[in-house]
């Protein structure tokens, strides 16, 4: 029996050691490899001057043709829209960028994301490798996640529960420095074609009283003298509860509403424009906001 317990103890020790080893290897790979996602890129970016920064969800990543906006405005533009990201994720991006870089203009896309003030699990997973090395990320996760202690102190837990984004496959691709499909320093991920028939989508029926995360973003921009532009991008004709946009405009007075006037053929699906639509929208957005852009 004593020998068996010794064996169990050695097996248990082996498991703990392998957990620490795996955690260490993954972390080192993500910290030291070339950025393959936008959050990695932001963490690694220092002493840069950005004229125009776009943040938001996939409705930013798919809608803002970075190069086109760059050409139209003649200003250094970057698109940091992340699929699944909410305002809380955008706040983290902004905090990280402001801490080490200079930004003149921020374009934030607002829509039904106004309803949420918690981070999305999809977007935040890209921040997990930096939990122990970056204070801003550490504080953000501590504030927003109930399982913070598990994420922080159980070896490999943060990678295990976020395996679709930062699991084995992504670690190997980062290790071999494989280039990502989307260059994070540009950030535009166009969608091609149309998913016809467009499936009906619905905006929320009611609206939140306020969003404290948006207030915090506005506050950071004010303190850092950043020109903040809030806008809403288009939806297809089949979108339901369009009145939500009117309600949103009352909550966000300076909101630039570009949600209407786009042919359904320009959509990949009801909430996302295709590459053609993105070009038209980027141009329209530039013309609607060019007077506000701070030099």
């Amino acid at each position: 029996m004593k020998q068996f317990f010794k064996y169990v103890f050695s097996l248990f020790s082996l498991i703990i050691a392998l957990l620490y080893l795996s955690d260490f290897i993954y972390t080192q790979v993500y910290i030291n490899s070339n950025p393959r996602n936008k959050l990695q890129y932001i963490v690694n970016t220092k002493n840069e001057n950005y004229d125009i920064l776009f943040i938001g969800s996939s409705r930013v990543a798919n809608h803002i043709d970075t190069k086109l906006f760059d050409d139209l405005s003649n200003k250094k533009t970057i698109n940091l829209g992340v699929e699944g990201a909410g305002l809380s994720d955008n706040l983290l991006q902004l905090k990280l960028l402001v801490s080490n870089n200079t930004i003149s203009n921020v374009f934030l896309q607002i829509d039904s994301n106004f309803e949420y003030d918690k981070p999305s699990n999809i977007a935040i997973s890209e921040a997990m490798p930096f939990l122990n090395s970056n204070d801003i990320i550490n504080t953000h996760i501590k504030k927003n996640f109930n399982n913070y202690k598990k994420l922080k102190y159980i070896p490999f837990y943060r990678y295990a529960i976020n395996d679709p984004k930062i699991g084995f496959r992504e670690m190997v691709l980062s290790f071999i420095n494989k280039k990502p499909k989307t260059n994070p320093s540009i950030g535009f991920t166009p969608m091609f074609g149309n998913k016809f028939p467009l499936i009906e989508n619905s905006l929320p029926e009611t609206i939140k009283l306020n969003n404290i995360v948006l207030d915090e973003i506005i506050d950071i921009c004010r303190k850092n003298k950043i020109q903040l532009t809030l806008y809403i991008s288009p939806y297809c004709s089949k979108i339901k509860n369009k009145k939500y946009i009117e309600k949103l405009r009352t909550k966000v007075p300076n909101l630039i509403d570009l949600s209407k006037g786009y042919d359904d053929k320009l959509f990949y699906n009801c909430s996302h424009l295709n590459n053609q639509g993105a070009k038209i929208f980027t141009t329209n957005l530039y013309h609607a906001t060019k007077d506000k852009i701070k030099s």
Binding site: L14, L18, S22, A160, I161, N162, D163, F168
Partner: peptide, 12 residues
């Protein structure tokens, strides 16, 4: 096997 369970397992 243990490494496989740790790194290739689906926990999300």
């Amino acid at each position: 096997t243990i490494l496989g369970i740790i790194t290739l397992g689906v926990y999300s």
